[in-house]
Simulated assay, not measured.
Amino acid sequence: MAEPGRSQSKADYVYDSLLREIRTAEIPGGTPLRAAAVAERLGVSITPVREALRRLERDGLISYERHHGATVIDLSDEALSEFYSVRAAIEGLGARLAAARITREQLDELWQSHASMVEDERRGRHELLGEQSRQLHLAVTEIGGPAFLGAHARSVRNSYPVPPGASLWLDPAHAKNNLNVHERMLRALQVGDGNTAERIMVEHVQFSSDYRLGRRGPC
């Protein structure tokens, strides 16, 4: 684990470390977080750990129970469905607004990101695609809503981790389909068609919801 940078407080370092581990499901839902153990593992005192845990509680990522301490939240199917519904609303609106304000430079950067994903998919590097997709979605939303939507989209994304084995991007057929969807959305942004960009984004996110809920259900 990397040590905190010179410009980063110890509390920020602990928060960022735990946030990354929770978001990537290195620390899965239902895992207890003992402040003393976290402090020892990250090489800090217990004070910044407690501050970081309070921030994670405000983020809705951990909960406190009497006599049990902090535990990483394991969302129910109902909560997971709500998570994707919120994502669809925010990211869909971001795509619609982005179509009206995107610059040539921003569009070129999105196409470059898409081209990188296409190349990774062609080479079978599916494990890289999930994070790249996340960044592309956030970039579109931040272009559409730089004042509020972008920050909200990032916060919502951070509020629920996607376990590495649950990503659609690991399935070659789904990966190709997702790339086609991304291309269609970028083309809608390119011609300034906000309604189409929003519809594509909403359907794209809702498909992810159906996939995740199906994976959690009975086989």
Rank of each mutant, 00 (worst) to 15 (best):
P161T: 07
L149S: 11
V162T: 15
N178P: 01
S155F: 12
A139Q: 07
S159I: 05
W169V: 06
Y160K: 11
P172R: 01
W169H: 13
H137N: 13
F148H: 09
P163F: 11
N178Q: 06
N177Y: 06
A175I: 10
R157G: 11
P172N: 00
L136F: 09
G165R: 08
P164K: 03
R134W: 09
S159G: 15
H174T: 03
T141S: 01
N178I: 04
V162S: 13
N158E: 14
V156M: 00
V162P: 05
N158T: 03
N177T: 08
L170N: 11
A151P: 04
N178F: 08
R157Q: 13
G150V: 11
T141I: 02
G165H: 15
V162L: 15
L149R: 08
L136V: 11
A173I: 03
I143S: 02
I143D: 03
V181C: 02
N180W: 01
A147G: 07
A166W: 14
S167M: 08
A153T: 01
H174L: 15
H174N: 07
Y160M: 13
H174M: 05
Q135H: 12
A175S: 14
A173N: 02
L136W: 06
G165P: 06
L149E: 02
P164G: 01
Q135A: 09
H152Q: 14
L138Y: 08
Q135C: 07
H152R: 05
R157P: 05
K176F: 08
L170G: 12
L138G: 08
R134T: 13
W169K: 03
G150Y: 04
K176S: 14
Q135D: 07
H152N: 01
L168P: 06
Q135Y: 10
G165A: 12
R134S: 12
D171L: 09
H137M: 10
G150S: 11
H174S: 13
R134Q: 14
G165S: 15
H174P: 05
A147E: 15
H152L: 14
V181H: 04
V181M: 00
N158I: 02
G145W: 02
L149H: 01
H137G: 07
P163C: 12
P163H: 09
L168S: 13
K176M: 10
H152G: 03
W169S: 05
A153M: 02
L149G: 07
R134Y: 10
R154P: 03
T141C: 14
H137V: 13
A147C: 08
L168A: 13
F148I: 13
A173H: 02
G144P: 06
